[in-house]
């Protein structure tokens, strides 16, 4: 049996799609966010390791992504009345469903560094986002936030 012309057409189309996909991926990997070129510090990366090793995201969200048993922590660091001491107080507290962790002071600082630097990347929930008639949402970036 020979390949029919439609099979050849489909293969051609697939090749085009895959090429586009390659270009697209390259761009996404290299140019994700022009606004915030903040890089995480060594401390914050250690904090993120702890964040992953203890599955904090199974209960907490960052930018609304994660589990829903606990609150979103994107901007906890900069919320009035919260901040470093507040976060630290929670970590080993075992409040409600939150496990009673045994973090050392160093580890607590790393977690705080992580949450602090995440806080600097943006705003969630984005209460001042503008909804356009087209259904589009223009986000408020951290750098624009009225101080």
């Amino acid at each position: 049996m020979k390949r029919t012309s439609s099979t050849r057409f489909y293969m051609g189309f697939l090749a085009v799609l895959i090429t586009l996909f390659a270009i697209y991926n390259f761009t996404v990997y290299t140019k994700t966010n022009p606004e915030s070129d903040l890089l995480l510090s060594r401390e914050a990366i250690k904090g993120e390791d702890l964040w992953q090793q203890n599955n904090c995201f199974s209960c907490h969200q960052l930018y609304g992504l994660g589990g829903y048993l606990g609150p979103d922590l994107t901007n906890t660091y900069s919320t009035d009345g919260k901040g470093e001491a507040y976060i630290k107080a929670f970590l080993n507290s075992g409040i409600k469903t939150m496990p009673k962790f045994n973090f050392t002071e160093k580890e607590k600082s790393n977690l705080v560094a992580f949450l602090k630097e995440v806080d600097q990347t943006g705003i969630y929930p984005n209460l001042n986002a503008k909804i356009e008639k087209t259904g589009w949402v223009t986000l408020e970036y951290k750098s624009q936030k009225a101080k």
């Binding site: 994700t32 890089l39 995480l40 990366i45 993120e48 630097e117």
Partner: peptide, 10 residues
């Protein structure tokens, strides 16, 4: 990994 937003997007 250094760039949190990039990491989360990917």
């Amino acid at each position: 990994r250094n760039n949190f937003i990039r990491d989360l997007s990917i």
